[in-house]
């Protein structure tokens, strides 16, 4: 094993094996969660709480981000166009960019931090303090009790939050155009409508739904598979955020390739 090439190959092999084992664990958990989906009586009454925690409580941060994104988009658009392009195209750029890309992706990334970390830390703590085992001994299916309500809540609520973010971003861009760019409302609306397609909103919603599923599923996975005390919980939380963010960016490209 002294040979550096052998050692590197061994390390590579270990990583591949670990990755495969992780995928296997994720698959097993996904199967358990799908099966638990039928246990409606268990997760049904927990859904509202999770929808509030994952959705409603995420609205302020999402709108905060959307507001500043809208302002910057309007200013950068007008800076870029500098007379060469009619100013009403600011409305086009703000609308399209907000709905197609920045609304869903920035919200998704922010919620990967807020929601994904929260789920991983909470479930990770429950795992290492044997609370998940305790659920089992009391004849509750932990997948039905903990995973299903979170994943469903995330999948349902992310689109709602993203639509609000899209809207608020556009409004922020419009107000910026009015007061900082000397545009009129008519001009902004004209630009906004110019290349608008109803499909854009559907595209935004499809992305948001897939991001909601990703963030909650990844958070649940790292929470459930946490091992080893407070340090383990910290590790799971970090991984959940990093992995969820990466998957969001990959999905973002995936939807662009497949749907546009």
């Amino acid at each position: 094993m002294a040979n550096p090439i052998t050692r590197a190959l061994a390390a590579l092999g270990r990583n591949v094996v670990n990755a495969m084992a992780g995928l296997g664990r994720f698959g097993a958990l996904a199967v358990a969660a799908t099966r638990a989906g039928r246990d409606v009586t268990t997760w049904g009454r927990l859904l509202a709480v999770q929808m509030a925690r994952i959705g409603v409580e995420s609205v302020p941060i999402a709108l905060f981000i959307a507001t500043f994104t809208g302002i910057v988009l309007a200013l950068q658009a007008s800076y870029t166009f500098t007379g060469a392009v009619p100013l009403y195209f600011v409305g086009t750029l703000v609308g399209k960019t907000m709905i197609l890309e920045l609304g869903p992706v920035l919200t998704g990334l922010a919620l990967a931090g807020r929601v994904g970390a929260n789920i991983a830390a909470e479930l990770g703590t429950m795992r290492v303090t044997e609370q998940i085992d305790a659920l089992e001994t009391l004849a509750y299916d932990p997948a039905a009790y903990l995973i299903v309500p979170r994943v469903i809540a995330g999948t349902l609520m992310f689109p709602v939050v993203v639509v609000l973010a899209d809207g608020v971003g556009i409004v922020a861009g419009w107000i910026t155009s009015l007061y900082l760019l000397d545009m009129s409302t008519e001009e902004f609306i004209r630009g906004l409508k110019l290349f608008f397609a109803p499909f854009d909103v559907r595209f935004s919603l499809i992305k948001a739904t897939s991001f909601g599923l990703t963030v909650t599923a990844v958070g649940c996975y790292y929470g459930f598979t946490t091992i080893g005390g407070a340090e383990g919980v910290g590790r799971s939380t970090t991984r959940a955020v990093v992995v969820a963010s990466m998957v969001i960016l990959v999905l973002d490209a995936f939807w662009a390739i497949v749907l546009l």
């Binding site: 429950m126 303090t129 085992d133 305790a134 659920l135 001994t137």
Partner: peptide, 13 residues
């Protein structure tokens, strides 16, 4: 039919 008392209580906090 089985009650389980955990060594470290494992209460739902």
């Amino acid at each position: 039919n089985v009650g389980y008392v955990f060594q470290f209580a494992a209460l739902f906090d």
